[in-house]
């Protein structure tokens, strides 16, 4: 029954945000167009790269449309994170600094839930639909190519969505964990930037991190800070199901589940520990 109540609170948050967005409709449309343009610029950049090379990485199998599947997965994950969590987590450190967190603590509901989902940024969802368009086009191109066409099965699609949500959960955990530390540090602008730069590593296929410097990087961003599995695992399920080293993919997929659970539990623990040290600022 408690789950139902949380769902109802969430739906109220979602409706209120939508009402607010619709009050400033022109602004909403401008913001949607802006994030769409940003996405188109990126797409143009990658299209330009593929006019100069057939693949990213030798024998990696990341050709243009395989990579576009990867790119649309990045768009899905990022737009979901931005829609539901980004603005809230961004505001969290501000709430700590100003003492506004008191009001969240007083509510008879889980604090992490209120903090994380209070405001929903509907305009970021536009990239989710743009990503869906790009995904459908790329999958179509891959399945009609003459040599080695791709067959997409319902199982693959189901797994794809499950792992995409795992990716969202991992990024969310990193964000909330990092911003909870601002209870101890006071101000953490650089830390927040740091989060931005770390996710930068999730944007490309993990094969590119090879060699003396690449291997340790890949290790760190897979096992210590699991941002590499965020996009790589779901994208691989759809774009490269028939890679010869599928046993590696299997263990990577199993690891992604472990990483998701661990990140969620870890960030929850950090969040609760940080709350214990919260001393309300003047309000």
């Amino acid at each position: 029954m408690e789950g139902m109540q949380y769902l109802r609170v969430f739906l109220t948050f979602a409706r209120n945000s939508l009402i607010r967005d619709m009050t400033f409709r022109a602004n909403f449309i401008l913001e949607s167009i802006a994030s769409l343009c940003w996405m188109l610029g990126n797409l143009g950049f990658y299209a330009l790269i593929f006019t100069h090379t057939p693949y990213i990485g030798r024998d990696s199998g990341w050709g243009q449309y395989e990579f576009f599947v990867f790119l649309s997965t990045t768009m899905f994950v990022n737009s979901l994170v931005q829609t539901f969590f980004m603005a809230n987590v961004d505001e969290f450190s501000e709430l700590i600094r100003t003492g506004g967190l008191d009001f969240a603590l007083l509510k008879p509901i889980d604090t992490q839930f209120v903090i994380s989902l209070r405001k929903i940024d509907w305009s970021s969802l536009v990239n989710f639909f743009a990503g869906a368009g790009l995904l459908v086009i790329s999958l179509h191109k891959l399945s009609v190519r003459p040599d080695n066409p791709l067959h997409v099965s319902p199982t693959m699609v189901a797994l794809y969505f499950i792992y995409m949500l795992c990716g969202v959960a991992i990024l969310y955990s990193l964000m909330i964990g990092l911003s909870a530390t601002s209870i101890w540090l006071g101000r953490n602008q650089t830390l927040y930037d740091f989060w931005f730069y770390i996710t930068n590593f999730s944007r490309y296929p993990m094969e590119i991190y090879s060699g003396t410097w690449g291997r340790p990087l890949r290790w760190v961003f897979t096992f210590a800070v699991p941002v590499l599995v965020v996009v790589n695992v779901p994208a691989r399920i759809l774009a490269q199901p028939l890679r010869p080293n599928s046993s590696l993919s299997f263990s990577l997929a199993a690891f992604a589940i472990v990483a998701t659970v661990a990140s969620l539990l870890g960030s929850r623990w950090i969040f609760n520990r940080a709350l214990l040290s919260y001393r309300s600022a003047s309000s």
């Binding site: 790269i49 693949y55 990213i56 030798r58």
Partner: peptide, 28 residues
């Protein structure tokens, strides 16, 4: 202090660019 750390951070995206272009040159 914040300045120096921030500047160093700004080089991080270049690390991924270096790897990306290495992979592209390798494929070509």
């Amino acid at each position: 202090g914040d300045f120096a750390l921030g500047t160093l951070m700004r080089f991080l995206p270049i690390v991924t660019q270096i790897f990306l272009w290495y992979a592209i040159f390798e494929a070509r």
